[in-house]
Amino acid sequence: MVFIPKQKKKAIKPYHRIKAHANPASDYNFYYPTGPESYDWTKNYPQQPMNEKKVEIADVGCGYGGLLISLSSLFPERLSVGMELRDKVVQYVEERIDKLREKHIGQFQNISVIRTNAMKYLPNYFEKGQLQKIFFLFPDPHFKKATHKRRIISPTLLSEYAYILAPGAFAYFISDVEELYLWMFEHFKNHPLFEQVERNIAENDSCIPLIVNSTEEGRKVNRIDGKKWFAVFRRITDPTKKDLAFKNYTLTSPKEIESTTSTTTTTTTTTSTITEIDSKEEESK
């Protein structure tokens, strides 16, 4: 009798056991394109007209892909991509998106994930000024002073992010580690090509509830009632016009934003069911 294994219905997280950290400085052996022209995006977005459309949203260090799935329904006309260094996590997210595409035909065609080192190879994927939004959600804190170089935000790397962002594009970042948040805030603030977005615009941004609550890491912090700090910066073209009198502010995750998530986000049951399983299994661990 031939044994035919039944297909897994969903990607299950514990079967993609991985380390929480990866060293971005070491050379991983994976494919990356020599330039943006040579990358074939149709593999990632099989049902999208890739000769007309371009990826506009990038989630650097997408982790388990919680944000990506929310972005799919928030921006149905835009293409979003997640970038992750850890092989197993990428596998998991790929599987997760595949299952969602199977289940909801026609949906989730505008999101994808690629395994890459965003600190090294961002210009290999995106042209100058291609991106409209970039996310840095709960990055690895790298507490040790010796490994500060591995943090995703540094003055030298910000220049590269500014290169791939279109003028006026937004960069979002959030962390539950205050020290890291201050580090990121300081570097964004001091970079000549970024300025903080005005408070009223930032608070009404539809992405804010997502970055606070849609990621796995964000939920983990919710469960332990932790604090989150986040900010939004805008890519500017002329550093001399940067408003020096502008008063910078810090946003922590206020209760109002958390409570409004259910109404503002158009993400429905699909994400919540998956994450319920995830969280249950995490708890059982």
Partner: peptide, 11 residues
Amino acid sequence: NCFDIESFCLG
């Protein structure tokens, strides 16, 4: 103004 990148030569 080295923070302003003009281009990358990739290939």
